[in-house]
Simulated scan of single mutants.
Amino acid sequence: MSFPLGSGFDGTEWGLSSNGSIPGMAGRTQDAITERLKAQVGSGHWGGLGGGLINLILSLIAAAVGAILGVFSTVADAILGTVTDDYVAQLPTITDHSNTLETLVEQFDQLILQGLAQVFTSNNTYYPSPGILSVDIIEIGAGAGGGSGRWDLIADQRSGGGGGGGGGEVHVSIPANLLPTDGSGNFVGIPILIGAAGAGGIGSGAAGTGGGNTTFGTGSYQIVAGGGNGGASLGTNTGSPGGAGGVGMIPGGAGGRGAAGNGGVMSTAGGNSVSAYDLNGGGGGGGGGGTPIWPGSAGGAGGISPGGNPGVAGTPPASIVATGGGGGGGALNDGTTAGPGAFPGGGGGGGGGGVSSSTNGFIGGNGILFIIERSS
């Protein structure tokens, strides 16, 4: 639609009143409405849906900021690392993560100390990897069982049992050209036998059983770490002797003597298997006692693994150290039990003997074998 040329326009024919407002709405001009809207938005009092929408948007922003900050109270705190009580309460959980990392470090250290050792705790066959230059062998024989105590009304006929001897230790490096091969020059399997722990004597006056030998190979290239000898149970006034330690480059600790029934000879502690420069075998079991007057004794140390106090098990070595365990403590008297030898190679403690009762000797610790392959 166009307007006649040369004619004016007053708007009344289009529904506007003579003062430019909407008919029936005096003063509702465009300028008045614009000013009204500016005033309401600027004062923060937008009524109706507009105000609700603004408040909703602001609340969503505040919630998002809160989620980002978490336990921190302000953005500045989050940047600077200031913590709250809730954060402190979560520290044990964070510490648990740190403990897991410490465990991982410890496992890595085991690889450093043992050189990625293959560990054998039961009979098996070892197959050398192609291309190796040598293998390091560390083997420990089994600990023997302690003798039981002996009871009798006659003092000279009762005694504590002798402790079992600890397993011996052998460590040696074998050049690859000495390992057995087939007709084509390929390595063949090498049998491994792990010594079983000697059992403790059961019943009055029973000797402990010797520990088994741990062996690598057969025939001319067999390497043996001897098991300990069992503790005796003798009703004499000199007590019951402990078993000798197993043979090896470092012999196992000897078992301690069981106390004499007449009280004239006290029990003795198990012998240690220690060396200032090399790895070690198992400690000997402690000798058994009979009454509070002639008590049992502690087991011997296997390297850095302490023996047990009377009636207490020997201490096993840390997993990162290839050495023997401590010997078990002898029975304190005729009413208590002896302690077992620790794995690997610790000797068992001797039992107690008295006027009318006795206790059994305790078992030793099994043997073990480590193989570390060297390629350079």
Rank of each mutant, 00 (worst) to 15 (best):
M1W: 01
F3L: 13
F9M: 07
D10F: 04
G11K: 11
W14M: 09
G15W: 11
L16F: 15
S21C: 07
I22N: 00
G24Y: 04
M25H: 13
G27I: 10
T29M: 04
L37F: 11
L37C: 10
A39P: 00
V41K: 09
G42A: 13
S43A: 12
H45V: 11
W46D: 08
L49K: 15
G50I: 01
G52K: 15
L53A: 15
N55P: 04
I57E: 10
A64F: 08
G70W: 03
F72W: 02
A76P: 04
A76C: 06
V83H: 13
Y87R: 12
A89V: 00
L91Y: 12
T95C: 07
F108D: 09
Q110A: 10
I112L: 15
Q114M: 06
G115H: 12
L116P: 02
A117R: 08
Q118E: 07
V119D: 00
V119L: 12
F120P: 02
T125H: 10
T125P: 04
Y126N: 00
P130K: 09
I132W: 11
E139Q: 14
A144G: 05
A144M: 00
Q157R: 15
R158C: 00
S159M: 13
G161P: 04
G162Y: 05
G163W: 10
G164K: 09
V172F: 12
I174P: 02
P175I: 13
N177T: 12
N177Y: 13
G183D: 02
V188W: 01
P191T: 04
I194H: 04
A206N: 13
A207S: 08
A207T: 07
G210A: 09
T215Q: 12
F216G: 01
T218V: 15
Y221F: 12
G227W: 04
G228Q: 02
G235K: 03
T236L: 13
T236D: 06
N237M: 11
T238G: 02
P241G: 10
G246C: 06
P251V: 09
A254H: 08
A254I: 10
G256E: 06
G261P: 04
N262V: 06
M266Q: 14
G270R: 01
G270S: 05
G271D: 09
N272H: 11
S275H: 13
A276Q: 10
Y277A: 14
G283F: 01
G288V: 05
I293N: 08
W294Y: 15
N309H: 02
A313R: 10
I320W: 15
A322Q: 00
T323N: 03
G324V: 05
G327Q: 08
G328I: 03
G330D: 03
A331D: 05
T337N: 14
A338E: 11
A338K: 06
G341D: 08
G341E: 03
A342K: 09
G346R: 00
G351H: 05
V355R: 01
S356H: 04
N360I: 00
G365Y: 06
G365A: 01
N366M: 01
N366L: 03
F370S: 03
